[in-house]
């Protein structure tokens, strides 16, 4: 059972909302400011992957603003003891996770993957629609 779950249309303008929600949940769960910065970065990357299209053949960095037309992005935050686990997946319009690598979630921009690996305690790509699971263990403030 997630502490907080958020579903949004796969549009780039909603990624900021997802970051704000995730950081707010983590702050309430007692994560320190340094970790909140890391959570903000990693969640932003995971959600950006879920809304951005795959990089084009012309060699762009996946920057085209055209989003997937249908479906939703599903973000679940579980605050459990001293851990925060966040899952981001693409769903169909009924909220069922998409099967297999779907849409842009299969895209693996190396900068984005590096940022998630560098800021989350663990970051794993899931089989379901190439989603992401990100985890942090809570550190005492000032640790």
């Amino acid at each position: 059972m997630p502490t907080v779950a958020l579903r949004f249309s796969p549009l780039a303008e909603h990624v900021r909302t997802a970051r704000l929600v995730a950081v707010s949940v983590a702050r309430r769960a007692g994560f320190c400011e340094d970790q909140l910065d890391e959570i903000r970065i990693a969640i932003g990357e995971a959600c950006a992957r879920a809304v951005a299209p795959a990089p084009t053949a012309s060699g762009g960095l996946g920057l085209s603003p055209a989003p997937a037309e249908v479906g939703l992005v599903d973000m679940r935050l579980c605050d459990d003891d001293d851990r925060l686990d966040v899952t981001v997946v693409q769903c169909d319009e009924h909220g069922d996770p998409l099967e297999g690598p779907a849409g842009s979630l299969a895209a693996t921009d190396p900068l984005s993957m590096a940022l998630m690996a560098g800021t989350a305690d663990s970051s794993t790509q899931t089989a379901a629609a190439g989603g992401m699971v990100l985890s942090w263990s809570r550190q005492a403030d000032g640790a």
Binding site: R19, R40, I41, G44, E45, A48, A52, L61, G62, L63, D109, L111, S112, A114, L115
Partner: peptide, 13 residues
Amino acid sequence: EFLDSTGLGVLVG
């Protein structure tokens, strides 16, 4: 205030 990989990509471009 905030910079993500898309922004980095723009600077590299």
